[in-house]
């Protein structure tokens, strides 16, 4: 009886309709908002990347600043990368050896397969994730604080273009140093794995250091990934830093945004290059 009454009341009916419409609109807003955000961010990042490339080719040469950034990105990260990748090498070899012992007991391919995996996947990707955490956040925070203290505006007023002055040296330095750090990381992880294999499973070094599984293709895939990560991380970090608003709270937001976006980008790029790599391998 009560339900019939409610259904008959036109005002109640209108309120119900409005509430349904509100739910539908909230549903689409919830789906649409992240899509709009991702589309806008990708568009802005692409624009920043293109402008950066333009200045790399035709801008002022500032080798001192590039070297300073290379020191900041490379030298200051090498211990962090070496320790992380060294431990990762030990853990992976121990786990792989442990599982292999349970199934086949054959450890002769341990080193060869691990090297291939390191070159194609773990070396460049884990290094890039570490760089995104250590260097990317630093770049976003540094540029973000320059924005909130008007230093970027002061730069513009002094006829200096912030992208050319701030982004380009970081971009060049990161592109070079991520490749260098990836090579260092692969070597250290492989050596740490060798020591673990010898200590835990008595695999001699001659058996472990087997390059038989590594092809030029693996090296090209690994270096391509390192190159792509090296270019992507500073673009994402500098974009986050240069778009800061709202004081120190905004700087905090930018560093979080930088590390989240850069990590996501590394994983997506890893997937794309790996996928394309297998397609190319199948074709040739």
């Amino acid at each position: 009886m009560s339900n019939q009454k409610q259904a008959a009341d036109p005002r109640m009916q209108e309120e119900n309709d409005q509430s349904s419409a509100g739910l539908v609109s909230a549903f689409f807003a919830a789906i649409g908002e992240p899509i709009v955000y991702v589309t806008r961010t990708v568009k802005e990042l692409s624009a920043l990347f293109l402008v950066t490339i333009k200045y790399v080719i035709a801008g002022k040469r500032r080798p001192d600043e590039v070297v300073a950034q290379m020191f900041e990105i490379g030298n200051r990260s090498v211990v962090f990368i070496a320790v992380t990748l060294g431990f990762l090498g030990m853990i992976l070899i121990y786990q792989a050896g442990f599982q292999a012992m349970k199934i086949t007991g054959d450890l002769t391919l341990l080193g060869a397969l691990f090297l291939q995996l390191l070159m194609r996947e773990f070396g460049p990707t884990i290094t890039a994730l570490m760089i995104a955490t250590r260097v990317g956040t630093g770049m976003a925070a540094e540029l973000g604080s320059m924005v909130v203290t008007d230093q970027v505006d002061a730069m513009k007023m002094c006829a200096a273009e912030p992208i050319e002055y701030l982004v380009v040296p970081r971009f060049i330095a990161s592109t070079i140093m991520v490749i260098v750090l990836t090579i260092v990381a692969v070597l250290i992880s492989y050596l740490a794995g060798a020591l673990t294999a010898y200590t835990a499973f008595d695999v001699n070094f001659r058996t472990y250091f087997d390059l038989g599984f590594v092809s030029y293709f693996d090296i090209i895939i690994g270096l391509t990934k390192a190159l792509a990560y090296g270019m992507t991380i500073p673009i994402i970090a500098c974009h986050a830093g240069l778009n800061v608003f709202g004081g120190s709270e905004g700087v905090g937001r930018a560093t979080t945004q930088s590390v989240v976006n850069a990590s996501l980008a590394v994983v997506v790029i890893d997937f794309i290059i790996s996928g394309l790599g297998y397609v190319v391998l199948a074709l040739f």
Binding site: T149, D150, Q151, D153, A154, M155, K156, M157, C158, A159, A160
Partner: peptide, 28 residues
Amino acid sequence: QLRFDIGLLFQNYALFDYLNVTENIAFP
């Protein structure tokens, strides 16, 4: 080009904190 004709003194100074005073003033 137009900004070469305009000087702006910022409320919060906006000095480049990674440059010394000489290089800050020399920047433009």
